[in-house]
Design a protein around this nucleic acid. Sequence first.
DNA 1: CTGAAAGCGCTTACAG
DNA 2: CTGAAAGCGCTTACAG
Lengths: 348, 348
Amino acid sequence: MGAVSRASVTLEQVARAAGVSRATASRVLSGNPAVSAEARLAVERAASELGYVLNRAARSLAAGQSAPTGRCQSIGIVILEPTSEFFGDPKFSRLLTGIGEELSARSLQLVLFAPHSPADVSRLENYLAGGHVDAVMVLAHRDDSAHSRIRTQGIPVVFGTQPPDNGGSSFVDVDNRAGGVLATEHLIEQGRRHIAHIAGPSHVRETHDRLQGFRQATWQAGLRSDMVEHAESDRDGGEMAMARLLARADRIDAVFAATDAMAVGALWALQVVGRRVPEDVAVIGFDDSPLAAATRPALSSVREPFEEMGREMTRAVVNLLSDRDQRPRQVRLSPELAPRESTVSATA
Amino acid sequence: MGAVSRASVTLEQVARAAGVSRATASRVLSGNPAVSAEARLAVERAASELGYVLNRAARSLAAGQSAPTGRCQSIGIVILEPTSEFFGDPKFSRLLTGIGEELSARSLQLVLFAPHSPADVSRLENYLAGGHVDAVMVLAHRDDSAHSRIRTQGIPVVFGTQPPDNGGSSFVDVDNRAGGVLATEHLIEQGRRHIAHIAGPSHVRETHDRLQGFRQATWQAGLRSDMVEHAESDRDGGEMAMARLLARADRIDAVFAATDAMAVGALWALQVVGRRVPEDVAVIGFDDSPLAAATRPALSSVREPFEEMGREMTRAVVNLLSDRDQRPRQVRLSPELAPRESTVSATA
DNA sequence: CTGAAAGCGCTTACAG
DNA sequence: CTGAAAGCGCTTACAG
């Protein structure tokens, strides 16, 4: 009804209008049961008529829950990757699902930030300094300097990927090396002995770690671990790398590609030369993207536990919030195998 | 270095340690230049040694910028649609691009909220009441009650779709009726006279408005305006509707489908019966989705100005923020034609 | 350039 | 169940 007057109405005025003391009015507004029904009614009516609205700053000051690290019961998540890419990525929604669950269970508010420019970032830093969130989780590509590009003004932070400066920061990350081992051992278990790897660009940490996993697993099994071709992490890259591998060694009976997209490219290259998958060559990818289930034959892959990662990040943040003087928590989550037709022959 | 002590250090203590008054210490911390270099140094040193951290609540109380409607220079955007769908939707990133631009230009902080459950929504309402943002923009499907599900506690709101209760609220929306006219007139200009429409479910406002546009344009051109089939807004729906239309009237030389997905379905149905597009039948969709450019022939479509919509929403919000007692701003943006091969014969 | 002091709007023992 | 009063941590005229 009508324009709310801009000048703020104080508790004092409400109390006066209701014919009670400020203390009683305060009790009504904060839900203290020790108030007569009569007084309660008078205060509520006066408050609504005057358009009273609580001054949070004053309340938190008075209630002594005021420190900047104090409770506004909300956690920020800062997305330092190019927004458009990230929002479209299933990784993001899975991560957010996990975070959302865990936050909901704790009645914490989720606040999302997606700064684009350096100016956005510094504006965000100011906002964070304003104490509008209790802590933040930072999601960034691990291979850029984004981590160091944001200063969180002393509020607790948990990273979604291991920051370059291992140092004292908390992070939750996927163990890509373990994933590489998993994929390779799966191929070995299927009886494959001539296993090749299509690796991503070597400066990308994820794919580099997957390569390490491949090397470790082949080495331990006493197999050749040098059947490796690097390529761009897309289909074309995968296709070309597969062709190079076939030229190098004709006996290849399995391929582990560092991403599903590359694996799809490998599938193409194999089809071109008439190799059957999985009968002649088993193929496994990584990421368990929607792509994987859509190919023919369906592509085996390695699935990162993003929901769990989201949950784990949330737990880490909550922990940081409760006991302050605690060691940073550094977690590396193991991926899981998602076996499909491309590695498991029906004739086995 | 070392653990920051939890108990908050106050300005009083810093002042004492620095050998100055609280007033002087305050001046140093708030960047007031009227302080001697000496005093400044002493205060800064004391503050950092003691691990002093400003109590924002106290500052804002004292500074009198405390009302919940006060300035924190940030705007919230509330996403009331199922998150997973929405984040993947190009509409979202386009909207966000527009909003981001306009907000950056005004040095405003963007804060994103994506409540899932009713509990999330009421938690968000509390957060909003906490004055952490100055205003919000609400993005929701227009055909559910979402709009009324959120109470914004008196802070200014702009909707991204027209709320059911036209009332006094500000909104920016796409003019779907105008889009329907645009698509239909385009077909007419191409010389088509037997134009059919594949409409979406009639309870969905967008597609309903597009139907109105179709009716208006055909009527005005003196053409039949009753060649309409309703269907689900996906490919299958479009395919079946197209088949029904062909059964009803064989002379159809153009089809306007209410969504690109339906248009793709129509393309299939036409191919099955051997009608060439665009030679025999021209086809136009709506949404200008990535799909449109990917079909063969490439699909003509109608493009909603989502970037502009984002900018316009931002301007509306900023306006609401500056003069308060202003009439709600209600904007309907016109879509644009995105003509491609499916309506324009090379032989024209 | 500096300090004593009032005051921001609320909460909360404390005494009744 | 209620009120008078102290106090949360800071800012800001005001007087010097």
